[in-house]
Amino acid sequence: MNFDLRLPIGILFSLYGLLLTGYGALTNGDKEIYKRSLDININLIWGVVMLAFGAFMLLLAIRSRKAQAQVPPAAKSKVPTTTGV
């Protein structure tokens, strides 16, 4: 099947990462919001983590797409689409 799941995963988590990072930056220093998370701006920190994860997935998806494009169509099915474990 010619559908790389890493693409939607990458898009979704990059989007979430951007959302949280942005929101975290906007609300930085807001005591009321971050009272719950022990005065840690966890939105900002975790937003960056999610953004990094999303970007990594996108990178893998784009790399494998490029690799597939370079292989002649007949051999396409032989190209490994997995990244291992």
Partner: peptide, 10 residues
């Protein structure tokens, strides 16, 4: 209890 608005959504 622990997640602030934003991460709570996640």
């Amino acid at each position: 209890h622990f997640l602030p608005v934003g991460l709570l959504g996640i």
